[in-house]
Simulated scan of single mutants.
Amino acid sequence: MTEQSTEILYLPNARYTWGGDEFLFVEFDEAMNLTANYLATTVAHGLEQLDLPGVVDVCPANASLLVRFDPDVLGGEELRRRVQELEAQARTATQHTVETRIVEVPVWYQDPYTAEVVQRFREGYHQDPSGTDLDYAAKVNGLEDAAEFIRRHHESPWLVSMVGFVAGLPFMYQLVPRARQLEVPKYLSPRTDTPPLTVGHGGCFACIYSVRGAGGYQMFGVAAAPIYDPGQELPDFEDFLILFRPGDIVKFRPVDEAEYRAVQEQVEAGTWRYKQAPVTFDVEAALADPATYNRTLLEALDGAEN
């Protein structure tokens, strides 16, 4: 293990605070990183498996965890003790891995739907009203043009660090060294409109807007298939109406208009399925050699059937 990965992996103990009588907030770090997210996800899974009477909801986030509980059934100090035990187990495990999956998401970059909305929200909303969101994203990342930004956006996988804000919206963290991460500030003022399935970016996080609505992330394209299916009509949603879970790995794949339309036809026919493969995500391997580890993730996806 490298000196850098050792430093990142072993964070100080989490900070535990209360939100009134019904909420326990566990902060693993002040900033998003793979270790803090791993701890949040692992402790959340462990708490769900305990199935403690009195635990109402468990909500993992980028670098923290919020637990809602019924104090008439489960005492706060008892809950904190059980969560601290799970934290200790996660830290002292001989392997820091998560059983998850990698999912391929087809994206039409520079599509006409987000392009129209981009043009409606420039003056008073955007840092650079003269160009597009992709032009601006390339500029602030020191890249040659929008095409280079798009390539950097889809060539490496992303970790779903949390799901929320609106139903089924995934926040995604790029699995590359911090110095190579794409970072783009949000709009100066939020839009009142964002097309459904917009692929957006704010700070270091990518996202996919699951439904149409307001938003402040830069807009780069649209995903071709739903990630939120309240009617559970598509095969990938048989078990749950939301596609993504914290810990999932996402690989964006650029498509042209013809392929986008073809995917839409499969969605309408109820036959669309996401290409995906099971993987074991190893935090230490991802930190030690991101480029090599990402190739193993992408090889698993390449071998999957659509």
Rank of each mutant, 00 (worst) to 15 (best):
Q4F: 14
Q4H: 09
I8E: 13
L9A: 14
L11H: 01
R15F: 07
T17C: 10
D21W: 04
L24M: 09
L24Q: 05
F28G: 04
D29I: 05
E30M: 06
L34I: 02
L34F: 07
Y38P: 04
Y38W: 12
L39Q: 04
A40M: 03
V43K: 05
G46W: 07
L50F: 08
L50R: 06
L50D: 00
P53A: 14
V55E: 01
V56D: 06
C59S: 14
A61E: 00
L65R: 01
P71L: 10
V73K: 12
G75Y: 02
E77A: 14
Q89W: 05
T94C: 08
Q95P: 04
H96L: 07
E99S: 13
T100Q: 07
V105S: 03
W108C: 11
Q110W: 04
A115L: 10
E116R: 09
R120M: 13
H126W: 09
Q127H: 15
D135L: 06
A138G: 08
A138L: 08
A147M: 11
R151D: 14
H153F: 11
H154L: 05
H154E: 13
S156W: 04
V160H: 02
V166C: 05
F171L: 07
M172C: 08
R178M: 05
R180C: 08
R180L: 15
Q181I: 06
P185Y: 07
K186A: 09
Y187S: 04
P196V: 06
V199F: 11
V199Q: 02
G203E: 12
G203L: 11
C204P: 14
F205L: 15
F205S: 00
A206M: 12
V211R: 05
G213A: 00
G213K: 01
A214L: 13
Q218T: 11
M219P: 10
A225R: 01
I227F: 01
D236H: 00
D236W: 00
L241T: 06
I242D: 00
L243V: 00
L243N: 00
L243E: 03
G247P: 03
D248G: 06
D248F: 02
V250P: 00
V255S: 04
E257Q: 10
E259A: 08
E259L: 11
Y260Q: 07
R261M: 08
E265T: 10
G270F: 01
G270R: 03
W272S: 02
P278L: 00
V283Y: 01
A286N: 10
L287Q: 01
D289A: 13
A291H: 13
T292C: 03
T296A: 14
E299H: 12
A300K: 05
